[in-house]
Design a protein around this nucleic acid. Structure first.
Length: 261
DNA sequence: CGTGGCTCCTGGCGGC
DNA sequence: TGCCGCCAGGAGCCAC
């Protein structure tokens, strides 16, 4: 699930449920998901502390503690956070559980353990260490155009490369290409002014729309490709069929009729 | 600098 | 029902 829109929703979940609550305990149920922080350290830092603020950068959610630093959350392919109250059921693959008072919890669940929870003193340090590019929702058109010109990759690969532009993954890169009606393998430095502009506008509107719809694939507009990600599915833009190809090892879906190369 | 392959993990699905 | 291979919305590493 977790690309920029999904992570933004997770950030809001933390924001809406977990700020300014005293943390009674942090339970690390699988230390394998920890990165740049030990089990003892995260447990002692969180105990008696409280989250005061959240942020998102690319596909990372961050939560700042009252006393001190930031906890960083990455979700891999299968991670999510959810606020769990006494009467709710616990999700199936909780790897880290934060206990507040009154049987309220913030649970980090990650089936495939490809996500990571870490620690940083501030966001700038974190962004530098991870070599992240500019967030896809913050990039200006001028900067975006410059990146397109300086790159020699296909459009989809460009959109997914986190150290240039960050936040977009496999699904939304397909969606952006589709909305812009640009072939995913078209070279970025071969785009004309009009195409660059359209790609930029499509990127912004796809991400904003997805956030408005709470990143729920079932609530996306009918003209979105997202629910047609299947070989030979009907194209939501014409009467053609969706194709699947491999681009850098990942499945890419597009409509050859709408997105000419 | 760019792409392709392999790796870390677990689980769902379709085919036999 | 069981087993097998393939696939899955991420990303780091290495070879070419």
């Amino acid at each position: 699930m977790p690309e920029l829109p999904d992570v933004e929703i997770f950030r809001r979940i933390i924001d809406d449920t977990s700020l300014n609550r005293t943390i009674e305990r942090c339970r690390v149920l699988d230390a394998g998901i920890l990165e740049s922080v030990s089990k003892t350290k995260i447990q002692s830092e969180l105990k008696g502390n409280a989250f005061e603020e959240t942020a998102r950068y690319g596909k990372y959610a961050l939560a700042r503690l009252k006393k001190g630093e930031w906890m960083t959350l990455h979700f891999g392919m299968t991670g999510f956070v959810t606020f769990v109250q006494a009467e709710d059921g616990m999700p199936k693959h909780v790897r880290l559980l934060i206990d507040f008072d009154g049987e309220n919890h913030l649970a980090y669940d990650c089936t495939r353990k490809l996500g990571k929870i870490g620690w940083t003193k501030d966001i700038d340090t974190f962004v530098k260490k991870k070599k992240l590019g500019v967030d896809a929702l913050d990039v200006t058109y001028d900067a975006f155009q410059k990146m397109l010109a300086e790159n020699r990759s296909g459009v989809k690969s460009f959109l997914m490369k986190q150290n240039t532009l960050c936040g977009i993954g496999n699904v939304y890169s397909d969606e952006v290409c589709f909305q812009a009606r640009i072939h995913p393998q078209k070279e970025t430095n071969g785009l004309d002014k009009k195409e660059s502009r359209k790609l930029y506008e499509s990127m912004k509107s796809v991400l904003e729309t997805a956030i408005e719809r709470r990143a729920d694939p079932e609530k996306m507009p009918e003209k979105f490709l997202i629910s047609h990600r299947k070989e030979d599915a009907d194209c939501p833009g014409c009467n053609g069929k969706v194709h699947r190809i491999k681009i850098s090892g990942r499945s890419a879906y597009y409509c050859p009729a709408c997105q000419k190369s």
